[in-house]
Design a protein around this nucleic acid. Structure first.
Lengths: 154, 154
DNA sequence: CGAGTTATGTTGACGCGTCAACATAACTGG
DNA sequence: CCAGTTATGTTGACGCGTCAACATAACTCG
């Protein structure tokens, strides 16, 4: 998406910034992740909450809520990660429908190894390019955009 | 990607804003596009420059440069769009390697029908949530982030 | 001219994400 | 308890995006 007809100059600049920067920024970060730690962005996203959970176990439902992913996305991704040995799936005692996702030693090793360089890259390519004043404006502004987004169904 | 360890509160807020808002925002916009005009975001992205080109024709190479897509991405997408009847591919007279992409009547009808509602949605969900002062900060700030991103190869 | 390099585009494999359909379990209200 | 509803997860199809390999054409320079 790159159309900016009927947006004035200031509006177009901000919009093009969002649309133009984020894909490139995430591409750079993912590349760093893949090369330095052998993890994709999707894998990293799930490994973070798992590594912070007690015993490295989360129910699929809760994992999905934590990262704001829908069920089938979690399911597909967990299956891919299980094939790679980063997690294992287990039955859920309390709810026979449920699926528990457990971090393996391989997965924990991977996320522990990946995190510092990833955070450093975020700081280097995003935070580091902005002033404190800009950070103070951007954070609340984007939170407000999120607030006004329709709620998935509407 | 959602890790924010070692980022302070202000930094994390801005970073989470970027990572959290853009996927949802683009999802909302794409949904509007699909429902109202039957176009995907990728299709829309290519149709805009094609509709603005003389005779609705661009060489694949130039189309790719315009939207900052690599060759294979253009190739795959143009093939999908040709199957849908939005464009046709033609040989390039000046350069036997080249591939010309031509907007069909169907494609032009689609983009003309899609654009107003799409721009309105951008205004509604992004521009409309921000103050003028915020737009003035965000545009140049993101442009600076883009400037400091490594140049694809490095 | 001709060998080596660069530019352009296609292809196939694979990971990712969404959607709709499905299966099953849990909950709810009579 | 039971019928209807809701919650959870899986599956298959398909579009999207990247990567590496490939084919071909154009360019460069001795």
């Amino acid at each position: 998406m790159s159309d900016e007809r009927w947006l004035d100059k200031r509006e177009a600049l901000a919009w093009r910034g969002m649309i133009g920067v984020l894909p490139r920024l995430t591409a750079v970060l993912e590349r760093q992740l893949v090369q330095d730690a052998g993890l994709s962005a999707a894998e990293y996203t799930l490994l973070v909450p798992l590594s912070e959970a007690p015993d490295g176990v989360l129910r699929a439902r809760d994992l999905g809520r934590t990262v704001s992913w829908e069920r089938s996305r979690i399911s597909h991704q967990v299956i891919r990660m299980e094939k790679r040995g980063l997690v294992v799936r287990e039955e859920c005692g309390e709810d026979a429908r449920g699926s528990m996702v457990r971090l393996t030693d391989t997965g924990r090793t991977a996320i522990v190894a990946a995190a510092p360089a990833h955070v450093a890259a975020v700081r280097r390519y995003f935070i580091g390019a902005l002033t404190d004043a800009e950070l103070d404006v951007i954070g609340p502004a984007l939170a407000r955009v999120l607030d006004r987004l329709p709620d998935d169904d509407g």
